[in-house]
Simulated scan of single mutants.
Amino acid sequence: MAKAVPLRGVQPALLKWARESVHLSVDEVAGRLNRAVEEVDAWESGAESPSYAQLEKLAYDLYKRPLAIFFLPAPPAEPKPEAEFRALPLADLRRLKRDTILLIRRARAYQESLVELFNGQSPVDEPIWKQVSLDARKSITEQADAIRAALRVPAPGAHEWGASDGDEALKRWRKAVESSGVFVFKDSFKQREISGFCLDHDQFPIIMINNGTTKTRQIFSLMHELSHILLGWRAISTFDGNSVNMLPDREKRIEVFCNKIAAEILVPSADFSEQLERVPVNIELAGPELFASLAERYRVSREVILRRFRDANRVSQEFYEERKRDWDGQRIQRASSGGSFYLTKGAYLSEKLMNEVFSRYGRRQITIDEAADFIGVKPKQVEELESRFLRGLAA
């Protein structure tokens, strides 16, 4: 077998930068390439260079970068999660896994696509951030009411919410948020403790939520991230309450505030107070049916109802934490096997983004290659995805 020929011109600093940008160690890269750690170290020190085939694997398989980037004189400017996200402790940000980093990068790419598609101007005349400005020092109830009004969602318990499994409710909340000017994407996060994240922007804010959880949990994540956007505060959120407790005081107050806003949007105090009049005095002795029925009414998780009981001093902190631990193990939504790529992609992408891309492609204002770039698929997949999207709108 011929020996691999080292590729001249590859910049060692770019190799190290690309590896660190996706939070991979030298050992992890060596293991994925089935190479010696010393060999990868030598590439990054400049003592040796990878072959063309090795660089292709590094660029396309591991780091998800264009090949040409490794020949630049210096790494391009790019924000780091540690610098732009403040809703997780620094140690947790540094432990973000490669797949989460790539999802953040994909969200940034979607944001750039939106800027280009809409010529830098939000397609919504009066976006929600111009109607509602959040302030952690002001009334939770009044601010949550303002958000509900801006989103124009039905009252709790109204028949418009549809099926009780949360699927129709999630679709309605998502559509309401997108109609307000915020673009919503989904993906199945491999780092399962991450519930979602958001990228603020003066015209094209983005929310990405974890599709690997229950629909009701996704709804809460959506409202939590929306609260962050209305504060102008980029965030990566987790299911772990201990992470919040480890934050500096200011960031901790913001996270607690966003949780309270999300809970108040989904379970308005006035309506919940009416429901409280019909529940047993000692809620801790009530059966699971109580939590299930209220969760169904508001299309939220049982944990949200439990938190509302705790905030109303109807259950103890110990009871809250015990039940939450029990339910946390059930929050992961089992993905069905053999799913369609097109159905999954259609569910993950922002409807408003797809509508604009396919409208322009249908009018031949953009090419099939450009359409593919905007929505992050291969050119050969564009027309089938377009067909399914248009059929869905007509249904």
Rank of each mutant, 00 (worst) to 15 (best):
A2F: 15
A2L: 15
A2T: 14
K3Q: 14
A4K: 13
A4N: 12
A4M: 10
A4F: 06
V5W: 05
P6R: 06
L7R: 08
L7Q: 11
L7E: 11
R8F: 10
R8L: 13
R8G: 07
R8Q: 14
G9V: 09
G9L: 10
G9I: 11
G9W: 10
V10T: 06
V10S: 06
V10W: 06
V10P: 04
V10K: 08
Q11C: 08
Q11Y: 00
Q11A: 12
Q11W: 00
Q11M: 12
P12F: 06
P12S: 09
P12V: 05
P12I: 07
A13G: 02
A13S: 11
L14I: 01
L15Y: 04
L15R: 01
L15N: 00
L15F: 01
K16C: 10
K16W: 06
W17G: 02
A18E: 01
A18Y: 02
R19G: 08
E20D: 12
E20N: 12
E20P: 02
S21Q: 09
S21M: 05
V22F: 07
H23I: 04
H23C: 11
H23G: 05
L24V: 00
L24Q: 02
L24Y: 03
L24M: 14
S25V: 00
S25W: 01
S25R: 02
V26K: 11
V26S: 03
V26D: 02
V26Q: 15
D27V: 13
D27T: 13
E28D: 10
V29R: 07
V29M: 08
A30M: 04
G31A: 15
G31M: 11
R32P: 00
R32Q: 12
R32D: 03
L33G: 01
L33I: 01
N34G: 15
R35W: 07
R35V: 04
R35H: 09
R35G: 00
R35K: 12
A36G: 09
A36Y: 08
A36F: 06
A36E: 14
V37W: 07
E38K: 14
E38Q: 15
E38H: 12
E38C: 04
E38L: 12
E38Y: 08
E39R: 13
E39Q: 14
E39C: 07
E39W: 03
V40R: 03
V40N: 04
V40H: 05
V40F: 03
V40P: 05
V40Y: 03
D41K: 15
D41S: 13
A42C: 04
A42I: 03
A42Y: 01
W43Q: 12
W43H: 11
E44A: 00
E44K: 00
E44I: 00
S45T: 15
S45I: 02
S45W: 01
S45F: 03
G46H: 10
G46F: 10
G46A: 10
A47M: 10
A47S: 12
A47N: 08
A47I: 11
E48D: 07
E48G: 01
E48L: 13
S49C: 07
S49F: 05
S49G: 03
P50C: 05
P50E: 03
S51T: 02
S51E: 02
S51N: 04
Y52Q: 14
A53Q: 14
A53R: 13
Q54V: 12
Q54L: 10
Q54R: 05
Q54N: 11
Q54S: 13
Q54A: 13
E56A: 11
